[in-house]
Amino acid sequence: MASQHQRVGYAPGAFDLFHIGHLNILRHARSKCDYLIAGVVSDEMLREVKGIEPVIPLVERLEIIRSLKFVDEAVVEPVPDKLDMWRMLRFNVLFKGDDWKDTVKGIQLENEFEMVGVDIEYFPYTVSTSSTKLRSALDAITRSSAPTDAPSDFSRS
């Protein structure tokens, strides 16, 4: 149970198209806390907040995250507000990629969590591999393999 541990960490993410960047954040997060909870953003929140359709369904993303030896607990994140998740889980450190650092959203997050005594720790964002890049590659493959209007050899009599 999370409340039995001194430093409880929370690492939220979609974790869609799981890649080395996700692995790095979760591994680094676990090294900075006694108990790590990974919040897996629900399919509905991905659609609503990010405007994307997940490639990997929530139940499968949860199973992937739960299978990692350095994740103590994986939960569904069904709300857009991280403070709502804090009220449910009572973590005392929130982990984010450093692509959030010094952004409007990041500063707002820092200010909100400072008021409840939660630290924000940033980890290096993996520039070489990202879900956005993987999604773009999949979209390109899908577009290039889409059927054309040209008749195939099978349509001839």
Rank of each mutant, 00 (worst) to 15 (best):
K50L: 05
G97C: 07
Y125S: 10
S67Y: 02
D84S: 14
H28Y: 07
E44D: 15
L17W: 04
W100D: 11
D153C: 02
S145M: 03
T129R: 15
V55Q: 14
R87H: 09
M1F: 02
R135V: 12
Y10D: 13
S42H: 08
K133S: 14
I65D: 08
V59S: 14
D16V: 04
V59G: 02
I107T: 15
R90L: 08
Y125M: 12
G97M: 03
G106L: 12
A14Y: 01
D84I: 07
E110K: 12
E63M: 11
S67K: 03
A137L: 08
D102Q: 12
V118C: 10
L58V: 00
D119H: 05
G21Y: 07
N24M: 06
F70D: 00
L62G: 01
C33T: 05
A137K: 05
S152R: 14
P80V: 13
F18G: 14
F91A: 03
Y125P: 04
V59D: 14
W86A: 09
A140I: 02
K32Q: 14
E73A: 06
R30M: 07
E114S: 13
E112V: 13
Q108G: 02
R156W: 09
S157W: 05
L36M: 06
L109F: 12
R143M: 09
F91D: 00
A2I: 11
S155R: 14
V8K: 05
F95V: 08
V40Q: 03
M1P: 01
R66G: 00
L89H: 15
K105C: 01
I52G: 00
L134H: 07
G21I: 08
V76R: 04
P124F: 06
S42K: 12
Q4Y: 04
K105I: 01
A2Y: 11
L94F: 10
I25K: 08
G21D: 11
F18Q: 09
K82D: 13
I65S: 06
K82H: 15
K82N: 15
G9C: 11
S136C: 03
S136K: 15
L36V: 05
V79I: 10
G21E: 10
Y122N: 02
V55S: 05
I37K: 04
T132Y: 01
A29E: 02
L109V: 11
A2E: 15
M1Y: 01
V49R: 13
V116M: 07
V118D: 03
V118Q: 08
V59H: 13
D102S: 13
D84T: 12
A140V: 02
I52V: 14
K96P: 00
Q6E: 13
D149E: 14
P124L: 02
K32W: 09
E53R: 15
I25R: 09
P80Q: 11
Q4I: 04
G106K: 11
I120A: 07
A38E: 06
Q6G: 15
H28L: 15
Y122T: 03
M1G: 09
A140D: 08
D72F: 06
E73P: 06
I52H: 00
T148K: 13
N24Y: 10
H22T: 06
H28D: 05
I20F: 03
V76N: 02
M115L: 12
M1H: 04
T142E: 09
